[in-house]
Design a protein around this nucleic acid. Sequence first.
DNA 1: GATGAATGAGGTTTCATTCAT
DNA 2: CATGAATGAAACCTCATTCAT
Lengths: 194, 194, 194, 194
Amino acid sequence: MKKSKPKYMQIIDAAVVVIAENGYHQAQVSKIAKQAGVADGTIYLYFKNKEDILISLFEEKMGSFIEKINTMIAGKGTAVEKLLKMIEAHFSMLSEDHHMAIVTQLELRQSNKDLRLRINDVLKGYLQVIDKIVLEGKETGEFSVDLDVRLARQMIFGTIDETVTSWVMNEEKYDLLALASPVHRLLINGCGSR
Amino acid sequence: MKKSKPKYMQIIDAAVVVIAENGYHQAQVSKIAKQAGVADGTIYLYFKNKEDILISLFEEKMGSFIEKINTMIAGKGTAVEKLLKMIEAHFSMLSEDHHMAIVTQLELRQSNKDLRLRINDVLKGYLQVIDKIVLEGKETGEFSVDLDVRLARQMIFGTIDETVTSWVMNEEKYDLLALASPVHRLLINGCGSR
Amino acid sequence: MKKSKPKYMQIIDAAVVVIAENGYHQAQVSKIAKQAGVADGTIYLYFKNKEDILISLFEEKMGSFIEKINTMIAGKGTAVEKLLKMIEAHFSMLSEDHHMAIVTQLELRQSNKDLRLRINDVLKGYLQVIDKIVLEGKETGEFSVDLDVRLARQMIFGTIDETVTSWVMNEEKYDLLALASPVHRLLINGCGSR
Amino acid sequence: MKKSKPKYMQIIDAAVVVIAENGYHQAQVSKIAKQAGVADGTIYLYFKNKEDILISLFEEKMGSFIEKINTMIAGKGTAVEKLLKMIEAHFSMLSEDHHMAIVTQLELRQSNKDLRLRINDVLKGYLQVIDKIVLEGKETGEFSVDLDVRLARQMIFGTIDETVTSWVMNEEKYDLLALASPVHRLLINGCGSR
DNA sequence: GATGAATGAGGTTTCATTCAT
DNA sequence: CATGAATGAAACCTCATTCAT
């Protein structure tokens, strides 16, 4: 399988660095190749075209992120606790990976509609994790029975995403991870019964 | 001033139509000129460059939107009521202007980092409206005194934005305006004291 | 109309020179532009793409050639005389235009299948001229009534084409025009009744 | 010698198939290697470069064709009869080998000037066969003493070639072999004394 | 002998912007 | 003011060939 080949991840990692440091529109294939330490043509032994690099990048990174979250919140704890874990994991991952933070919050959003549709497919996996937590919370009575799952999901994802984007746009000047707890409180209030 | 000249708005309106119908990356200056009924070169008598069209577009449209909101919520009612008015106004405006909905939620996000920083400057006016409501709510005791204004703003804007984006991506299949009330309830729960 | 614009023919003439002197595969658009004395981009104001230059080149040159032949053989003379006129015109034109001779006999044949199909469409006009002469000859009794028109056309065109190609490949060392009469004699023998 | 190695012919045969089915410009070395069941690099153990494959292809196939013709017309019969035999052999061979017909009449003509000059060297062997028949015909009085051998050869080869090309371009819809006799009649008329 | 992963040069086309009219 | 013809820089991808195994 492709992914076992070292150059596959080597190129993806190079793409993250190049996009983060040069911006989406200045991330030429030749720059990525140079950063990865391979010839331009080698890129095309592992990826169909430039767009394929970006989709794969997102799939690989987001895929492993979703897996990590799923493992982390498996079984243990209430829905409220799981939501906190998820937010902490989300903030923690992007705090620790400066390049990925820039790429996911700013650069990859400049891609064209086709690419963004593909990215949304990957994101669905994440949104399903949120849905699962919300549903569980409704069942256990932690969240209001009237809660609309789609709206709750949009609030949770929208708030988290907006928080991270603000943090990145403010040049990561403050501690993102410290916001996990207050953001969590805001969100469970929103989901709670009154 | 530029804005008094009829061609200025003519070009901006043309840009909205062209971007909405062709997508950001297919919105060439020549297409906008054609749609506006002017020569390519005429564009440059009213705008410094292509980016200037897009910034002006956002400034004009967003500016009038913020004005409208400000008028609408001036003086009357509690913070909770003002928040509802604001959400309704936001959803209503985009419901009524299909082209602008596509342009603001999908197409303009594909612009480069520089342009998006400029757009964020314009957005600040809107975020200040939100801040004002949140602060008022804290003073009147409608919202928790512990509420972090920045986080609350991010939740409110993030939720609204994510809700609209989902609606646009789902091809505006359902009634966005009907979501104003449940979204509002979610948000005031989040902001409320417990 | 395009063709009235001077740059249209300017670019086509440049293409003939560049292809003849550099070969089909070394005839880059930038070389043609330079030879024509225009910018690369200007080419695309007059032609859809590179292939369109080549098709247009063939259409313009061959079109005017067929017109000339048609005028030349209109009405006057027997089929046998018309055939001679045609051969002389064919040999004469290529004798006088060294570049076109190379382009039509050697270089343009390297084009891909699509382009050659388009070229064949243009050639059909020429083949129809041959057919008309053959038919007339059969009617007047100059040629055998048993003569298969398609085969006769293939013999006439094949012989002429092969003669010119040989001449070009031999670096135009001998007088092509002098061959018109003996080639003509060969062909009318072939077509004649015995 | 190279040619005794089984892989040599294996690669040549693969090249014929790949070129016929994909076209000259889509006949990549890697495709030929795959069709031949060898690795890309192996090609270069038997051929100097890609052009060498094509020249060898033509030499091998044309060489055996010329041999066959020579054997077939050796000694027996008049020049007129030999010419018929030759045309029949030519039409017959290409009728029976669909791939070679496409390759020789359409695809190989797209090669560059250098390659076609090399191909012409090979063709000379065939043209000499024609010359021999024409000379013999002149000596026996079957053909006119005034007949220019070069022109006669160009007529014979040009007519045969044009006939086959037309047949291939018309997707081999009709019986090529049936044309041998009428084409032969045309040609001996052309060569005959009047 | 055989392999096939890696190489890297090279060209068509788009489109924001200018400036002579 | 308005025009629109002309400009020219810039990048993705292919594929013949090599060479370490």
